[in-house]
Amino acid sequence: MGFFKRQLPMIIVSVVGFLMIVSYFSPAPFLQGMFTGANEWVQIIANFALVIGVFSLMRAHYIKIKRKEAGYGYSIVMYICLIFMTFVGLALERNIKSGGVFMWMFKWVNTPLTMTTFSLLAFYIASAAYRAFRARTFDATVMLVGALILMIGRVPLGAMLSDFVHQQITVTQIIPGLPEMAGWLLSVPAMAARRAIFLGLAVGIVATSLRILFGIERTYMGGGD
């Protein structure tokens, strides 16, 4: 039994992984066929991973209702909406198309609720910026100046402001306008820093992948035996 619990998953990881690596370099029809098949299989398995996420959420709310925890009425509402949406999408309307109840629900219930929930962050960001965005140190000042140049340089107001100053005080024309400054920050220094992060990330991905394939990294198997 121990073989199935520990060794078999490791063998599967290594065999599948190395086959994928070899198929990257080799155009052999046999390997390419296997590679194409693996893509199909992953899509189907990944779909069940999504369903498991949904299942976990439903379980959490079910437990809340069963134990009659505070606010369990909301969980009942959640279930009613879930069942209604699923009924419409699976039983009432075969195939999802514009003009049906399912898409109506998506357009007028799901979408506005998602957008509004995320737009709350605009308020909290403003409040956090007011309270915490301080030029305490040199580094923080650099960050603050970078943020301010981008924020004003990327909206029409920044361009209008720069043009106005350039027209009024001719000497300032040797200094680039705010939009140009923001563009330069984005495409040179910030891009360089982002690339440094990307390169570090790529080294990390490659190293972790190889550790997994060679069976050194096993945390994905979780705890237990």
Binding site: L148, V155, L157
Partner: peptide, 18 residues
């Protein structure tokens, strides 16, 4: 336009905060 206006407000708030 709204973006410019909110930006001015946020920048103003950051400066005021500082």
């Amino acid at each position: 336009v709204a973006q410019s206006s909110i930006h001015v407000m946020i920048i103003g708030l950051i400066l005021l905060g500082n």
